[in-house]
Structure formats: structure tokens, C-alpha cells
Amino acid sequence: MYLDEFEYYAPKTADETFELAGRLGSQAKVLAGGTDLILNMKQSLLKPQCLIDINGVKEFQGLIYEAGKGAVIGAATKISELEHSAVLRDKYFALHQAARELGSTQVRAMATIGGNICNASPAAETSSPLVALGTKVVINSAAGERELPLEDFIIGNRKTALEQGELLVKFLLPEPAPQTASCYTNIGLRNAMEIDAVNMAVNLTLEADNRTVKVLRLVMGSVAPRPLVSVEVPALLVGQALNSNLIEKAAAAAAGEAQPISDIRATAEYRREAVFVLSRRVLQEAFNAAQEV
């Protein structure tokens, strides 16, 4: 349980970081909170020759919200900061909820949102809400900057769209439309310290009538190699005045879309069942919340 040896770099600026990332290429891993990376290295699942510690780079940290424009979250922002952010609670409730549910107090104090995403675990807590909220990621390298919708960034189980020398530096969350609410839910065996068997987030905007769905995104975690954006649920619900029958149908559709596998945490069959129940609950919850916005 000791680490293999590696070179350690602690850049102070973004440019320095990009230069290092470009120069060291695939030999290097980026160290943010370390709760996944160091564990993987201890278990010899990863053996990087170099670590680039980005905790000293101010540009990568913090949460800025500007009314009408949305939020920008630095990749190295701690989960605990998100958990306690009033803006997130008010504007991006699903992400607030997911941040609260992630790991333990200690893990939240260490782990970063960028790390949670770049680790690209299918069970990651923050990916479902971020995708549901329409988040874009900003990717930087010495060569320049590009933007991608988050769902295109996570391309598979533990795989991202990062090219050699590139870093994920920030998340762009659009300003929620009026009459919008988002919710997150998850299920695991215990009520803490879990890797979710299933998690799910929904972002829902109602028409002025306060009943009809205008826009809806439902994203499922841990039931596919990457966050699964439901196609059928919006197809069923957008333009409809929501009621419990419709929600039930949508939940069944979500369960049909899920592509779960069986593993040590749950069987595929159970996961599909859980998707049905959780999507029904989370849709209802989001609907109620959106009506009260």
C-alpha cells in the first residue's frame, strides 16, 4: 500500500500547468483532491511517472455566479465549497444535493469537481446533475482552449475526451430559465459512504401555465458506461401537462433506456427497477419544485 516513485510538479499558474502537461504528456497525471488518484496509485491501478499538482493554481479554483449569465466553477474547486454554496443551493439544486451526498466530510473537503468528472467513474455523483444542468466544460492546453458539452466530454467508463496535454479547467453552467427546478437522487445500500448503485438528476422547466413541461433533461448515473441522457423521457413529457400517469410512463421509459450491468453492488435487474422508482420520484419532486419557483 505504498506508492511507487514519481516526479512531483507544483505549478503556480495556469500557463505553467499547460506547459508541463504538454511537455510531460501521458507520463503525467493531474493531482487535484487525490481521493481517487492516490487510491488508484496505492492499489497499483495507475502508475504515473509524474504528478502535476494543480492545487496551487488560483485560476482553477472557485465558483463565480453572475445573474443572467450562469455559473463558472473552477475544476479544482472542492466539493465542500459546492456543498456549502448558497448559489448552488438556490440555482442548481441538483448539483448541491449531489455534492452533499458525495463520500464523507473528509472526502468532500479534499475532492474536487474536476477530479470527480475526470475520473469518469460511471457512478460519479456530480456527472448526472452537471449534464442535466446543461454544463459545458472548458478544456485548455498550451495550444489553446476548447469547449464541449459535458456529455461529450465523458466518453466511456473512465474515459474522457481529454487529449494529451489537455486539462479540464472549468465548468460553465447556464443560467436556469424561469420556472426551472433541478433535483438529484441516488440509491446505495447504506445512507452514507456509498458508491451509488444508481443515481439520477433531472432539470425541468415549466411553461407559464405552471403545468406543462417546456424543457426537460433526465440523466442517469451508474447504469451505463457514461452518464445516460434520456431521450425517451423528454419525448414523452415535453409539451405535456404533467400528471402522475405520465410520470409513471416516463419512469418506465427511463428504466427501458438504462443499460445497467451486474456487479458487486447490485444486479442489472435491480438497477433497472431502481431507475424506474427513482425517476418517478425525482420527476415528481422536480415538478413540485418547479411549480413553486
Binding site: L189, R190, N191, A192, I195, I264, R265
Partner: peptide, 16 residues
């Protein structure tokens, strides 16, 4: 053993 760790071997936490 597939869960020889306290992450996957689930002892009750205080939340239980």
C-alpha cells in the same frame, strides 16, 4: 475476495 476493503465491505456508518 472481491470486497476486501471497507469501501465495498459495508459496515454500518452512523447514518444507519
Amino acid at each position: 475476495m472481491m470486497n476486501a476493503c471497507l469501501h465495498h465491505y459495508k459496515v454500518p456508518t452512523v447514518m444507519e
